[in-house]
Amino acid sequence: MSELVFYSPVKSSQLTKLPVFTCPVPAGFPSPADGQADEMLDLHQYLFKQPASTFMARVTGESMLGAGIHPDDFIVVNRAITPLDGHVVVAVVDGEHTVKRLRQEPGRTWLEAANDLDPPLELHEDCDLRIWGVVTHVIHPLFKKRAGAAWPGRSPRPTA
């Protein structure tokens, strides 16, 4: 099962509001943009709609790659949302934490990975299952920086 590292939400006073361009950014052909920020985005308000019931965790393992959740990603988890069939959840099964998709049918419950290498985890009556919350957001970089490496498109920093 995936191991999680838990983090408490940051107080909103510790966050900075970021500029957001309200013009749409198509994922297809380029379109001209005016380059002006039209509003400010408060990340705390966006990620933590219910701060008292929301926490963050860092994911390890590759069982949820097909759902866009990668090793070292941060997930935002809301404990106030009622988990339903198809939700990605943080679950504790027999004392072990995991991130999986909750699947439910009448008389049957299981946790499903989003990686063909990991079989579904069928939950029987003698299983101790606790759903800690529903994953609402995933935060991950599109590339990882290696020590001493330049970011793509940039020259390495000169050394003195």
Rank of each mutant, 00 (worst) to 15 (best):
S2D: 14
L4A: 04
V5A: 12
F6S: 00
Y7D: 10
S8E: 13
S12Q: 13
T16K: 14
T16S: 13
K17G: 05
L18K: 14
T22D: 10
C23W: 05
C23L: 14
P24C: 07
V25M: 09
V25G: 02
P26Q: 07
G28T: 08
G28H: 05
P30A: 10
P30K: 08
P32W: 03
A33N: 11
A33L: 13
D34W: 04
G35T: 07
A37I: 07
E39D: 12
L41K: 11
D42W: 04
H44D: 07
Q45P: 01
Q45S: 15
L47Y: 09
F48Q: 01
F48W: 09
Q50I: 03
P51T: 00
P51C: 02
S53Y: 08
T54G: 00
F55T: 00
F55Y: 15
F55N: 00
G61D: 02
G61F: 05
E62T: 12
L65Q: 10
A67T: 11
I69V: 14
I69R: 11
P71F: 04
F74L: 15
V77N: 01
N78E: 12
R79S: 14
R79W: 00
A80P: 03
I81P: 00
I81C: 02
I81S: 01
I81G: 02
T82K: 13
T82M: 09
L84S: 12
L84N: 11
D85N: 15
G86I: 07
G86H: 06
V88W: 02
V89L: 05
V90E: 02
V90R: 02
V93W: 06
V93Y: 05
D94E: 10
G95H: 11
G95Q: 10
G95R: 07
E96N: 13
H97R: 04
T98W: 06
V99R: 06
V99D: 05
V99Y: 02
K100Y: 07
R103E: 10
Q104V: 15
Q104I: 15
P106T: 11
G107F: 03
G107D: 08
R108H: 14
R108Y: 09
W110A: 09
A113L: 04
A113T: 02
A114Q: 14
D116G: 00
L117E: 13
D118H: 15
P119A: 15
P119N: 04
L121R: 13
E122R: 05
E122T: 11
L123T: 03
L123K: 02
C127R: 09
C127Y: 08
D128R: 12
D128H: 12
L129M: 12
